[in-house]
Design a binder for these strands. Structure first.
Lengths: 339, 339
DNA sequence: ACTTTTCTTGCAATCGTGTGCAATAGCATT
DNA sequence: AATGCTATTGCACACGATTGCAAGAAAAGT
């Protein structure tokens, strides 16, 4: 690999002059500057960022920790974050924390070792696993913003979607359509999911709609979602609408309903949450809650950049909240008349 | 940020000793080693990878260039690559080249500047944009493996899926089911798509099935896919099967068919390509071509690691090909009897 | 007691850039 | 001609870690 020194030798000057020439410093004679620049570009010189980073004590890189990227929610987020980071002149160091317990800590360690300028942490379903690591990082002054629904993080910068409001809007929508027997179906709930449910249930309560236990189904695997759907259909009084609290779940539910010969929305209303691209790929296109991911990404990156660039880092922790909205598509209809 | 020197001062030794102690070198007295290790961990010392990388002239990082991550094909690939890289002890530097023409070059420049140990390049729909950059990189000895369907890359290491075989298998499947009027629908084709079509057409040819121009629809946007579907349905003799050569397209097609009151597979057979998770989310679950992404990722990373670790870098370029397989699900049925 | 070996440690150079400071030369000012 | 100013360049150190080499002490051998 070719260095400043190599160029310097060719040009018959010192490496300092080359460094300055390539930085377009006014401290270099205009002609030699030009000459060096041409020489360097011909030689295919490329600055060694590692050395530069060491000297500059900054890497112009932000670390992004995300549980996985096979779950379609995250890629959308990653794409937005990557674009924003690039715009701001930062590289992205992606770390996938997976579902493994230790991995989240390992990711943070690695990012710290690599001296990223700041860290964006998206906690997974199991919540904030590496709590002590995060606290240590924050204490040592590494800019860090947390996304997600984790408790006891008042001392950290956070960005969160107001899932309760989303759930509320969704329930309201179903009630307005006339539904009274509404089921909830999902995988093991974590904090964010919990908020969705709370909001949803609050709206039901206000409308005087009851939610018997038989209409609340928890499934762990895809196959269990199938069994859950069958279970709901087998009830003496089956629901007229199902709230699957993630779009991918809703897609599965629609699939299993189709297996049972039930068409959506004619015979059953289904709604999801998050408004992933997936929601427009399935048929019927899904009514869901959306519009929050973009502002979440914007706030996420924006807050981190503020922390990185601010000289005074000890302002009070911020908690930014983004409100999602109802996205009405084709998966809902009024309930059929009872016969 | 705390350095070796700081620990050294606390321990009353030189920084060299600390370095050796933390590396668990046998050149340090067992007791002092222990003492230093404890001291360092208490102080929360974390090695500065930037400095270490500079000295080691290696970063234990591989760069991954991917067009985007919002197209569901890529996240699956990224996830697999990330997992493999981590297993091998490498970090991942993700770069999104987007659709912009210059961006691909910029990504490569950036990765080279950061002195990644090797580069994985996935070319986008428009083919290999940064051809001269890639050649320069390869010539300068940076390990680089290319994925994708790009012409004139015999001098580079490549990993490719045998899309022609996939297309062939798909057509065969449709023909066996009895279909004779089969439409092809897709977005602007690039090289990989081209192979899919060639294989597909070859199988049709062999079976003596003709493919009139009216049954080949190209769409640029999602909306045009809708118009394309309408167009096909409006034909005097509409097709009995549609090959949408990406799963996401197939999903859209099924959606538009539903809009027109056509049910899949009873009234129309639809097949896709790639076997994304999406294929099981939509209903009916999609018959498609799959199983290639995992081995693609394995070969991709494996070949790069071989190049990185091999002392002799001038072996002949390799071209690894992965054969995909037919995945039969629920989106196909024999054609209806003509009335 | 003297030499040789073994352990342990520190010195100093290195990786490639960036930059404060000093040095030199050229030119203008008086 | 002496002085001051400016433009240009190089020296040398710093960033934080690794590592070959030498040095010193302790132990062992004769």
């Amino acid at each position: 690999m070719i260095t400043l020194e190599d160029i310097a030798r060719q040009a018959g000057v010192s490496h300092s002059t080359v460094s300055r020439a390539l930085a377009d410093s006014p401290l270099v004679n205009a002609e030699t500057k030009k000459r060096i620049q041409i020489l360097a570009s011909e030689a295919g010189y490329q600055v060694n960022q590692v050395a530069r980073n060491l000297k500059a004590r900054s890497t112009k890189t932000i670390g992004l920790v995300v549980p996985e990227v096979s779950n379609p929610y995250y890629p959308k987020l990653v794409q937005l974050i990557a674009d924003l980071a690039r715009e701001a002149g930062y590289s992205l160091q992606l770390q996938l924390s997976g579902t493994d317990q230790d991995a989240e800590s390992a990711c943070l360690e690695s990012l710290r070792a690599q001296r990223v300028d700041g860290i964006l942490l998206v906690s997974g379903e199991s919540g904030l696993v590496a709590r002590e690591h995060v606290n240590a990082l924050a204490a040592s002054g590494v800019p860090l913003v947390l996304m997600g629904w984790v408790e006891s993080t008042e001392h950290l910068d956070t960005v969160t979607g107001d899932d309760a409001k989303g759930g509320y809007a969704l329930a309201q929508h179903l009630i307005r359509l006339g539904h009274r027997r509404i089921a909830i179906l999902g995988k093991r709930p974590h904090r964010g999911i919990y908020d969705r449910l709370q909001g949803f249930k609050a709206a039901l309560d206000e409308a005087g709609v009851t939610l018997p236990g038989a209409l609340q189904v928890m499934a762990k695997t895809d196959a269990e979602v199938g069994r859950g759907v069958a279970q709901l259909l087998a009830l003496p009084e089956p629901p007229t609408a199902i709230f699957a609290y993630q779009d991918s779940l809703a897609a599965l539910v629609i699939g299993y309903l189709a297996d049972a010969g039930i068409s959506v929305p004619q015979q059953m209303t289904v709604v999801g949450f998050d408004n992933l691209d997936l929601a427009t790929y399935i048929s019927p296109r899904l009514t869901t809650i959306g519009g929050h991911i973009e502002p979440l990404a914007t706030q996420f990156v924006g807050l981190l950049l503020e922390r990185i660039q601010k000289a005074a880092p000890d302002t009070a922790p911020q908690h930014r909240v983004v409100t999602p909205q109802l996205v009405v598509r084709k998966s809902c209809a009024p309930p059929r008349e009872k016969k």
